[in-house]
Amino acid sequence: MDEEFVERVLALVESIPVGRVLSYGRIAEHVAAGYGPRYVGRVMSLEGSAVTWWRVVRADGTIAGPLMAEAQMHWLEESTPVRRGRVHMAEALWEPRTG
């Protein structure tokens, strides 16, 4: 995993607006560096505490168990659409502009 990929992932995460989210897979698609969602997860596990990590969720709107309570506090503060403890992806998914 190269440093440019790490920087692109972190920059994209920082650009996610308040109350919106991106999935690991969508981030991987947008940074288009040949790395998949697992690599995005790796970046977030190693470097994500420096950015708005709670705006990065699994495709089903969940987040890793140990982080769930803190993430839910952030989601509440940011008015992120949540249903039954998960981010409501149909409402909260953000699509970055490309091009």
Rank of each mutant, 00 (worst) to 15 (best):
A92R: 12
P81W: 06
W94D: 02
P17D: 01
I63D: 07
M1L: 10
V21R: 13
E3S: 14
R86C: 05
L10N: 04
V18C: 15
R83I: 05
L22Q: 04
P17T: 04
L76E: 13
A50R: 14
A28I: 03
R97P: 13
Y35A: 08
V6H: 14
A69L: 10
D2P: 14
F5A: 07
Q72F: 01
E14G: 06
A11M: 07
M1E: 15
P96V: 01
E95R: 08
D60Y: 05
W53P: 05
R84D: 15
G99A: 14
H74L: 01
V31T: 09
H88P: 00
I27A: 00
M68G: 08
W53H: 04
T52A: 12
G34P: 11
A50D: 14
W53A: 01
E91G: 01
L93N: 03
G36W: 02
R86K: 10
H74G: 00
V57W: 01
L76N: 12
A33N: 11
V87I: 08
F5S: 07
E7G: 15
G41L: 06
V56L: 10
M1K: 10
S49G: 13
S15C: 05
L12G: 07
R86N: 13
R38I: 12
L12T: 01
L10Y: 05
E7R: 15
T52N: 09
Y39C: 08
S15Y: 02
L76V: 08
R8S: 11
P37V: 06
R42H: 04
E47H: 15
P96L: 00
S23Y: 09
R26Q: 07
E14K: 11
A92G: 08
P96F: 02
R84W: 13
M73T: 14
V21I: 14
A11R: 12
E95D: 07
G85N: 07
L12D: 09
L22R: 09
R97H: 10
M1Y: 13
V21H: 10
Y24S: 03
V18F: 15
P66R: 11
W75Y: 12
E70V: 12
P37M: 10
A92Q: 08
Y24N: 06
E3D: 15
V87T: 08
R86Y: 08
G48M: 03
V82L: 02
E3Y: 11
E7I: 11
A50T: 13
F5E: 07
Q72N: 09
G61A: 04
R83Y: 03
S23E: 12
E78C: 01
E70W: 02
W75T: 03
F5W: 09
E47N: 13
G99V: 15
S49Y: 13
L76G: 09
P17C: 00
L10G: 05
Y24H: 09
M89G: 02
G19V: 06
T98N: 03
M1I: 09
A69P: 08
